[in-house]
């Protein structure tokens, strides 16, 4: 298990939301842009790497109790996505790196 704060520091992630949700422990990660695939294969407490930025990712993260969403390739969340993230208390992070590179760096922390 790795503290989300530690991941943010190590990978130099941008925090879009929400400052007070960053103390969660992360148990691993899942990478994917197909929502049904993430619904099927992700686990509670994982950090989810994706390039999807629309509000439905918050529903997915909330229903699956994911630890955080990490947007790859410098993608920024839509304003309505952040609104939902605030409501559902989901951490939304970002990085200019592509998913492959993020997954590689993340896996070294576990």
């Amino acid at each position: 298990m790795v503290a989300l704060k530690h991941i943010i520091d190590e990978l130099g992630l941008k925090v879009y939301c929400c400052r007070d949700t960053l103390d969660r422990p992360i148990i691993g990660g899942y990478s994917g842009d197909l929502l049904s695939d993430v619904m099927a294969h992700s686990h509670a407490g994982e950090i989810w790497i994706t390039i999807q930025t629309h509000p439905n990712i918050i529903a997915v993260a909330s229903l699956k109790e994911l630890g955080a969403i990490l947007l790859a390739n410098g993608r920024a969340p839509l304003p309505e996505t952040l609104e939902k993230a605030e409501m559902e208390r989901i951490s939304v992070l970002g990085s200019p790196l592509p998913a492959f590179e993020l997954a590689a760096r993340l896996s070294r922390l576990f």
């Binding site: 842009d33 197909l34 929502l35 049904s36 619904m39 099927a40 439905n56 990712i57």
Partner: peptide, 15 residues
């Protein structure tokens, strides 16, 4: 383009 339409919804329900 938004990540829907993987054709996995009904199979996910069945599983």
């Amino acid at each position: 383009s938004r990540g829907f339409g993987a054709g996995m919804g009904l199979p996910n329900i069945r599983r």
